[in-house]
Design a protein around this nucleic acid. Structure first.
Lengths: 210, 210
DNA sequence: ACTGCCATCACATAACTATGTGATATTAAC
DNA sequence: GTTAATATCACATAGTTATGTGATGGCAGT
């Protein structure tokens, strides 16, 4: 009899999954909480579940951070992410943190059950679409032109300034140009990257997407 | 109508798969050869298939080396490995070389067909057991302990919002608090992290320093 | 009861960012 | 020698961010 835990802040979804899993002959789901912190509290006083289903977007600590903490204290507990996020870096971060599977929230209840069994049998549950993104990470270092945004050298300079946390004015000083020129470059960068804030440029850059 | 190619040195298996795939309404398999060299010859004079099923152990060039050569000349052709090897090293090398899927030879004919369709739909066909080994590669690098800035759970939430590229207003909406509260939290975060702009917080966070 | 910390909100203002519109000079490509 | 792309600068303005100052209520520990 495998013991399952759930960390999910949407009460409706949480209850639904818990009731469904608990109903299964070969599973039991004694704990379903809405934050990593609560799960850690629970684990202080109970045996660790065999498998934990974990959301990413949670009140308090994020699910990804939670993976690391839980896996460190209870390394035999396997974690399956169950989330709406399908972007590569969240998937990647989850797996690096120690998750053993990654499902999207549209996954049906029987599929969730099946995924748990896959995991208990030594497999890693994930949809082919997720698998594709995981594989993508293997190819990245090899391919240089990951996606070519056609940034000019000057635009790269400006981006580096942004990533260093500089204001327009400081970037202007660094390259000895006027602040209006900086603005002009940044406008072009935004257009090329399809974003519209410093924050997004910095995020893209630090994720290696530029 | 998707076009499939096969590189496999066991004539019996090769013919079996070719006949089966060719029989399918939506597939055709005009080429099944027993070495990478022969496949390259074929490609000189014909349109590249949409998908190539590739063995690893082959006469002449290995299938893994073949992936690299074929993907370089015909980047739109997807490659699925079909092999007896299930060791992490071969799986890893194949994916790095550019394979989009990895199947073991005990895979049934209908499963092979299904895998091809998965691939054409943007997924990556691989068994859960293979997926598990792929994930294993992500876990190896263990991260160092990060400095404790004494951030409260709420402050972490806000930081996550910033990293997601949200404006104060959107962060306020996400957590259902007022924009002034968001401002207040951000002020405290800046103090704790010794920074004074969104940009720096995002950078710190994405560098794993939080 | 008192203190400290957390989370919430309000008002105010200076500084910075995002965007529109337009212009000039240089250089490489056709 | 015209075109296209790059890099530069200017003015204007709406919107966002950064900071200061101050306040309320909850909760934990002493």
């Amino acid at each position: 009899m495998a013991v399952i835990g759930i960390v999910e802040d949407n009460k409706k979804i949480r209850d639904l999954i818990q009731r469904y899993l608990d109903m299964q002959e070969e599973l039991q789901c004694p704990v379903a909480v809405d934050s990593v912190e609560e799960m850690l509290d629970y684990l202080e006083n109970h045996d660790a579940p065999d498998v934990i289903l974990m959301d990413i977007q949670l009140p308090g600590m994020s699910g990804i951070k939670g993976i690391g903490i839980i896996k460190q204290k209870y390394p035999d507990t396997e974690i399956i992410m169950l989330t709406i996020y399908h972007d590569s870096h969240k998937i990647f971060d989850s797996l690096v943190a120690g998750a053993s599977g990654y499902l999207l929230k549209h996954t049906s209840l029987p599929e969730i059950k099946e995924s748990i069994q896959t995991l208990l049998n030594g497999g890693a549950p994930m949809s082919p679409q997720i698998a594709r993104k995981v594989i993508g990470h293997f190819n990245k270092p090899n391919k240089k032109a990951d996606e070519d945004y056609g940034l000019t050298p000057r635009e790269q300079d400006i981006i580096n300034g942004l990533v260093d946390g500089l204001s327009y004015k400081l970037i202007a000083d660094r390259f000895d140009i006027s602040i209006d020129t900086v603005r002009a470059h940044i406008r072009n960068i935004y257009k090329k990257l399809h974003v519209n804030s410093k924050a997004e440029v910095i995020a893209k850059s630090l994720r290696g997407e530029i």
